[in-house]
């Protein structure tokens, strides 16, 4: 798409050219003044010194990190192995293996969590009717081996 340029006289052209020669550098200096001001006011810099501020760096309480079971001081969890979180998960990151206790009641055997496929959407926490799971504030989840992403969240079998 070619531009239509209206014909102008030579005098007009020289006039415009001269004007731009003056206004151009001024506009550049105007922009540069912003840069220079930031250069002399280092308190405006917002960069975080990440590995150094590790101790003070806290995520917000709603931050969705790694999934965990809520446990009381005895290490008992509230999970009843109902499997609602398993169904709510969009990419099958949760597997619940239930077992039977001595009384013959269905209880949680293993709560398997695949961090590698988890997208941290938080739908499992929302779906849980017993409030047995939460997302913790852990954000340094990378690891050297793939095996570490396959977690068993519960330490004990459920009480039922």
């Amino acid at each position: 798409m070619k531009q239509k340029v209206s014909p102008i006289s030579t005098a007009e052209y020289i006039k415009r050219y001269a004007k731009r020669c003056i206004t151009g550098p001024i506009s550049l200096l105007k922009g540069l003044s912003v840069t220079v001001r930031y250069f002399f006011s280092p308190h405006k810099i917002v960069t975080e010194q990440y590995p150094e501020n590790k101790k003070t760096l806290k995520m917000h309480s709603r931050y969705r990190g790694c999934l965990e079971l809520i446990e009381d001081e005895n290490g008992e969890n509230l999970c009843t192995a109902c499997g609602i979180c398993e169904k709510a998960c969009p990419n099958a990151s949760i597997n619940i293996l239930s077992t039977k206790n001595i009384a013959g009641k269905k209880v949680l055997g293993k709560y398997l969590y695949h961090l590698g496929s988890c997208t941290q959407c938080g739908l499992c926490v929302e779906a849980c009717p017993f409030g047995a799971i939460r997302m913790n504030q852990e954000f340094e989840l990378s690891n050297e081996s793939v095996d570490s992403f396959e977690m068993t969240l519960n330490k004990k079998e459920g009480r039922g």
């Binding site: 506009s27 922009g31 912003v34």
Partner: peptide
Amino acid sequence: DYERFLSTNIIVLERTKG
């Protein structure tokens, strides 16, 4: 600051107008 930085800058105007 933002507008002062780009909106009147001659290089930006030359490269964007038309």
